[in-house]
């Protein structure tokens, strides 16, 4: 009787181990874009424009006017336009 019980327990344990093996899933890492965990940042156009003659002033809080100011600054890097008569065209 005891032998039968032991055999039954062993068989059950073996079957459960086999079943666990069947349920194993492939371990492939799938990347998921994480969420930024840090502090929120402020936006550049939410500041007052500095009193600098080289900067085109923008309206505080107005993104479009800040972008216009930055674009004017960026175009200043083109010396063909900035320096009159420098173009070789």
């Amino acid at each position: 009787m005891r032998l039968t019980t032991t055999c039954t327990i062993a068989l059950a344990a073996g079957l459960s181990l086999l079943a666990a093996g069947c349920g194993e899933r492939p371990k492939v890492t799938v990347y998921k874009q994480g969420q930024y965990q840090g502090k929120p940042d402020t936006r550049p156009w939410d500041n007052d424009p500095p009193k600098d003659p080289s900067i085109v002033a923008w309206q505080k809080g107005d993104k479009a006017s800040w972008e216009k100011s930055i674009k004017a600054r960026t175009l200043g890097q083109n010396e063909y336009v900035r320096i009159e008569g420098a173009s070789n065209k």
Partner: peptide, 24 residues
């Protein structure tokens, strides 16, 4: 924070030959 001052990165603005451009 030069961007919040309406300026571009110092490296690009200081480049003497304008080899380095920065901006939109």
């Amino acid at each position: 924070n030069r961007i919040a001052e309406g300026k571009l990165p110092a490296c690009a603005e200081m480049c003497s030959t304008k080899a380095l451009l920065g901006g939109d």
